[in-house]
Simulated scan of single mutants.
Amino acid sequence: MLDPKTGLPPRFLRTPDAARFLGISIRTLEKHRTYGTGPTYRKIGGRIVYTLDDLQGWTENGVRRSTSDETPCRVFPARPLTPAEKATL
């Protein structure tokens, strides 16, 4: 995915491209941003952008070796946690 003008990979991805990169819907990524559960983003000139490193780092939160793995980091759900869910962390 090279920039046709410069021949370089993009430094930042807008929300639609970031969602496509992650394999999730635009709306899901927007919800994660709203609830603070998503990848780190930047606001430049009123536009929301993501770096590839931040997107890849966010996906590392979901790495598991087994279904029984327990880790403090959660990528999902894309909503605020309930008090009961917070207590299980």
Rank of each mutant, 00 (worst) to 15 (best):
Tyr35Ala: 14
Ser25Ala: 06
Gly38Cys: 03
Gly38Lys: 06
Phe76Leu: 14
Thr28Tyr: 01
Thr71Val: 10
Leu13Lys: 01
Leu29Cys: 02
Gly45Ile: 02
Gly46Trp: 07
Thr51Met: 13
Thr51Ser: 04
Pro16His: 03
Gly45Cys: 07
Pro9Cys: 07
Asp54Glu: 15
Pro16Val: 08
Ile26Asn: 13
Asp69Tyr: 09
Leu81Gly: 01
Val63Arg: 12
Glu60Gln: 11
Lys43Asn: 08
Gly23Phe: 08
Leu13Asn: 01
Tyr41Gln: 05
Pro83Phe: 02
Arg27Asp: 14
Pro72His: 10
Val63Trp: 14
Pro16Gly: 08
Trp58Ile: 04
Ser66Trp: 10
Leu55Glu: 03
Met1Arg: 15
Tyr50Arg: 00
Glu70Cys: 02
Thr6Ala: 05
Cys73Tyr: 12
Arg14Cys: 13
Ala84Ile: 03
Asp53Ile: 06
Leu13Gln: 10
Leu29Glu: 01
Thr88Asn: 12
Glu60Val: 06
Arg74Thr: 04
Thr71Glu: 00
Ser66Val: 04
Leu55Asp: 03
Arg33Trp: 00
Pro77Lys: 03
Leu89Pro: 00
Asn61Asp: 10
Ile24Asp: 00
Lys86Pro: 01
Tyr35Arg: 06
Ala19Pro: 06
Leu8Asn: 13
Ile24Tyr: 02
Asp53Lys: 13
Ile24Leu: 05
Val63Cys: 12
Glu70Gln: 15
Ile44Gly: 07
Leu8Gln: 15
Leu81Trp: 10
Leu55Asn: 02
Tyr35Cys: 13
Phe76Arg: 13
Thr28His: 07
Glu85Trp: 03
Ile44Asn: 09
Lys31Arg: 15
Cys73Ile: 12
Arg14Gln: 06
Pro16Met: 09
Thr28Gly: 02
Ile44Leu: 12
Arg11Ile: 03
Ala19Gln: 02
Ala78Gly: 05
Thr82Met: 07
Ser66Phe: 08
Asp17Asn: 09
Gly46Leu: 12
Phe21His: 14
Thr51Lys: 09
Ala84Thr: 08
Val49Gln: 04
Gly62Cys: 07
Asp53Gln: 15
Thr82Leu: 10
Pro39Asp: 02
His32Lys: 09
